[in-house]
Design a protein around this nucleic acid. Structure first.
Lengths: 119, 119
DNA sequence: CTGTATCCACAACGATACTG
DNA sequence: CAGTATCGTTGTGGATACAG
C-alpha cells in the first residue's frame, strides 16, 4: 500500500505512545495542514506557487515546514530543471493518506469559524 | 445550534484568514486533541482522572491546555463540591463539534503509525 | 525562481517541588 | 484532590535582507 521505505516506528519514540498525540506531533502545527491541503488540491507546485496558494506564510517558515514534511515522508521534492532552477513539491502516498484529517479540519473551520472580512 | 455566547469571529483576527490555518491554530498542538478526545470518550472528568486518561502529560501542561480550551469555549469547568474540592471538565457543544476532526486524527494514527512497544 | 541567513519574540513543553 | 510556582529547554513563527 505504501511506496515508502522508511519504517513508521521511527516516528513513535517515547514512552507515552498514543495515536492522537503522535499524529498531533507530526502535523499539529499552524502551517503543516495548509501546506498539505494545497498540495492535495493543486497538485505539484513550485516553491513560490505554493507560497501564493498558502498565502500568509513566510519563505523561511515554508522552508522549515517542507523540510519537516519531507523528513517524515509526506512530501517529495523534485528538481525539475537546473538551468532555470525549478523545483516541484508533491505529496507522497503517505502524504495523501492524510486527506481525511485535513478535510475534517477544513470542514470544521468552514462551519464553525467566520472570516473577519465578512464582518 | 450553539449555546455559546462568544462570537466566533474573535478567533479569526489576522489578515491571512484560512479555515485550516485557523483551526490548526486552535487545536493544532501536541496535547489539545488528546484532551478533547478523552473528554469525548470518558465524559466529564476531574483533573487527575483526566490526567490519567491522557497519560504522559504534566500537571502544568494540562492546566495550560485546559485554560486555553476553556478560553475558546471548547471546555467547561465546573466546581462540583467545595468541601472535598472537586472539579469536572466537560466538553461544550462547540467542543463536541470537533469530534470528526479528532476521530480522523485517531484513525489515521492507528492505521499509519506503530507503537514502539509492539516491536 | 528558489531559497538562505540572521535575529528575534514568544509559545509550547517538561521536570520538580510545593500548596490550599 | 486540584492545582501553582519555578525554571529551563526547545519549538514555532515572523521580518528583513541577501544569494545562487
Amino acid at each position: 500500500m505504501s511506496t515508502d521505505s522508511e519504517p513508521l516506528e521511527v516516528w513513535c519514540a517515547g514512552s507515552d505512545w498514543c495515536p492522537i498525540t503522535t499524529t498531533a506531533t507530526l502535523i499539529g502545527k499552524k502551517w503543516h495542514p495548509v501546506v498539505i491541503h494545497r498540495l492535495l488540491e493543486n497538485g505539484p507546485l513550485g516553491f513560490n506557487a505554493l507560497k501564493e496558494e498558502v498565502d500568509g506564510i513566510s519563505a523561511k517558515v515554508q522552508t522549515d515546514v517542507l523540510e519537516d514534511l519531507e523528513e517524515h515522508g509526506f512530501v517529495d521534492r523534485t528538481v525539475v530543471s537546473e538551468k532555470p532552477f525549478r523545483v516541484e513539491y508533491s505529496l507522497t502516498d503517505r502524504g495523501q493518506s492524510l486527506e481525511p484529517v485535513i478535510i475534517a479540519m477544513r470542514d470544521w473551520g468552514r462551519e464553525h469559524l467566520t472570516a473577519p472580512a465578512d464582518q
